[in-house]
Design a protein around this nucleic acid. Structure first.
Lengths: 243, 243
DNA sequence: CGTTGGGTTGAGCTTGTTCAACCACCGTGG
DNA sequence: CCACGGTGGTTGAACAAGCTCAACCCAACG
């Protein structure tokens, strides 16, 4: 056996880039020691903005963990209308939880995206074999069900301005959770993406932003928002923050 | 040891009513042999129409499996608006999947309801210890996430008539799945409950029913509906049933 | 320097809400 | 037995919210 430090076999199985990965402490990777990192890691892939990671109805492909960028998961109606169900942020795993047999939804890179790529069968077996990982998957599933339900209540009951307020609060929480700047928030989403997420038209989203500015609840440009009055926004959004 | 066939201890631990339970073949109970039925069974409870099984924010109580009747799970805004997130039918388990620490939502009996009652810790431990049961719980969770997502797309994208059409298709599928009469469907839900589920007002639901009748897609009374043209309804509902 | 892709804003229209009247059904009590 | 009130459903008319279509703005970029 060769002792050369970079034989092709060694390059394949050793030295994963995990130690410098910005999301090594997120989700499934959080409890991994170097040995398990090496066992689980396979490869990475980058996706251009607008590129589709998987399409509804297609047979299942690999499991993807987002390293950088944002993925929108959506359902599309035959006539082209689409509902963005969720935005996946760095650290999250997409194309896994919401799958049974085939993809039910569509995953699209909303920004430039970099992902870790795992063979599905291997990933499933590995997470099933390790209790701590299985528990993380389960907890994520429960939390996704909760936020989908909450989102449901927003779409069903809130007016357009209320929905945008709720969205901004949600976005802030998400940024905070991922250690990103929250004052101001960078808005990596177009008005159209926000509209498709909130079940309204982009013009209505734009008007809602204008209203919130006029009410001095936010300051906003095309790509940045500052939440000036978080409690005010939250109460608009119907969050019953009982103190 | 007494040989008397009905000592109090024996009454407590033996002879669960499972053999005659109408939902013994549903969900978690499906793979149970008599021994496991005896181990898992605790007791039953009935709830009057309108009674609240649990409230958002309360500490967790027991896990409930519905034997007969329908439970509506909803989120309520501070100002009283409510969104019915899901209807739970006989065989389903409620107050379990969507919980983390405390109840996030509210469960209310929409009809007279009979349930099996399981101590939560015991239930959790038992299902975790049996692989087949754990798998059923996991699959249910995934399927609930899928249907919540789909419901989200309906609320976000469909018009009022389309939503009612989608709801009727869904209801029919649900009845079929539970072996209930589907022609005509009995409608155990008030117009108000349907409205709260679809994010509209009861008057709008009523008008949508009238429109669907005029289009001869359905026949309906207060408490019964017949779906005359299922494909027609489905296409209204935006179901891309590719043949 | 023109073109292109978002974003904003206005005017008119459509859809769904609000408020109110009315109806059918059902159980209760005179 | 019938009058009564209550509950849930339907329908209409006026109104409001959000959508459509179109003009316009601005910054980025070839």
């Amino acid at each position: 056996m060769s002792e050369s430090p970079r034989s092709s076999r060694a390059a394949l199985t050793n030295d994963p880039p995990c130690p410098t990965c910005p999301v090594r402490a997120h989700n499934i990777c959080r409890p991994l020691d170097p040995r398990r990192q090496r066992e689980l890691y396979e490869k990475r892939q980058t996706w251009k903005k607008g590129q589709v990671l998987y399409r509804a109805g297609e047979p299942l492909g690999p499991v993807l963990k987002i390293i950088t960028g944002i993925v929108a998961v959506s359902e599309r109606l035959p006539d082209g209308r689409r509902q963005i169900l969720d935005f996946f942020f760095p650290g999250e795993i997409c194309g896994y939880l919401e799958t049974e047999g085939r993809y039910s939804f569509e995953g699209e890179a909303i920004t430039e995206v970099e992902t870790c790529v795992f063979g599905r069968a291997r990933f499933k077996a590995y997470t099933a074999a390790h209790d701590d990982l299985a528990e993380i998957v389960r907890a994520t599933l429960v939390s996704k069900l909760n936020s989908a339900s909450h989102h449901l209540a927003e779409l069903g009951q809130l007016s357009s301005v209320e929905r945008v307020a709720a969205f901004l609060c949600w976005l802030k929480a998400r940024h905070a959770e991922h250690g990103l700047e929250t004052r101001p928030l960078t808005l990596p989403l177009s008005r159209e993406a926000i509209a498709d997420h909130l079940g309204m038209r982009l013009e209505t989203v734009s008007r809602a932003f204008s209203r919130l500015k006029r009410l001095e609840l936010i300051e906003a440009s095309d790509t940045e928002v500052t939440l000036l009055d978080l409690p005010g926004l939250a109460s608009l959004a119907g969050s019953d923050d009982r103190p």
